[in-house]
Simulated assay, not measured.
Amino acid sequence: MEYDIEQMTVKMIKNQDDFKDKIVLEIGCGGGEISSILATDTKQYIGIDPDINAINDANQAYDNVDFRIGSGESLNFSDSSFDIVIFTLSLHHQNSILAMKEAYRVQKDDGKLIIIEPSVDGEFQQFFHLFDDETQVIGNAYHSLMNSAFALKIHDTFNTIVRFEDKTDLCSYAFDRETISPGDENLIIEKLNQSQPGSSEHSPILLKDILDIYLLAKN
């Protein structure tokens, strides 16, 4: 699987602020691919994620980012430490109220907060809903950011393309499942046939994801 084959997420994040010589914190960095691109020309770039395996992989793959295990709910950083704080598809995966308060605490007064969140209507997101409907938690994250101490400056929507080699690749993707059940493949193929009727067995599969991006600043 290749997520965001056109790197639209990186382009949209970079459009929000100048990263040159900035101190940046990314919350939910995963395997670090986006982090390594955004870190270019920054003064310091720290990426945190609660997934130990993802952080280990990121540390082995990239050397221009300080990757650490951590959660946005309890940041181990001093007040007013960062010029830019980013949530990359991660705000809805944690207590969003606590995470927004922590982001406010560690961000400098003239800093920026950038949040990327999935839309519940995205084609790719629909496959996650098969196993864990995230509609409520995504809504909670939106409510938390809109009712936080930050001021919303920009809200925009953009599309990304997710590429799978074939149906086997699609069915083997985790979609945030802790365990994969025998009947899961049937659910995935049924959903694919609904969204893309006539998909062939061994051809690449392209799914559109819809993402929301928010730029916020301290009042």
Rank of each mutant, 00 (worst) to 15 (best):
F164M: 05
L215F: 07
M12A: 12
G111Q: 01
K112F: 12
G122A: 05
D169M: 08
V120A: 10
D110A: 12
H129S: 11
T168A: 14
Q136G: 08
F19W: 06
G30S: 05
I13T: 02
I86E: 00
Y62C: 07
V137Q: 10
P182E: 03
D51E: 10
V137I: 15
A149R: 12
D51R: 07
L152W: 03
D132P: 08
Y45F: 14
N15V: 07
S74C: 13
N193C: 08
F175C: 06
M100Q: 03
Q16P: 00
N64I: 04
E26I: 04
R163F: 11
Y3H: 15
T160A: 09
H93L: 13
D49H: 04
H93M: 11
A61M: 15
G198H: 03
S195E: 15
M100L: 15
I188P: 00
A99C: 05
S81Q: 08
N193Q: 10
A99Q: 03
I97G: 04
T42N: 04
I37N: 08
F67Y: 09
L192S: 00
T168Y: 11
N64L: 05
M8V: 11
D79W: 05
A58P: 04
T160G: 07
I180N: 07
F127R: 02
T9H: 04
T135H: 08
Y214V: 08
D184M: 07
D166F: 06
K167W: 01
M12W: 09
D51F: 08
I27R: 01
T168K: 14
N186Y: 13
V137M: 10
I114Y: 03
R68S: 07
N186V: 15
S80E: 14
S36A: 13
L216R: 00
M8K: 14
E165H: 12
H93Y: 10
I5Q: 04
A174S: 15
L216Q: 02
Q194Y: 11
S78E: 12
N147H: 11
V85S: 07
A141E: 00
I161H: 08
D21T: 09
F128Y: 12
V106M: 03
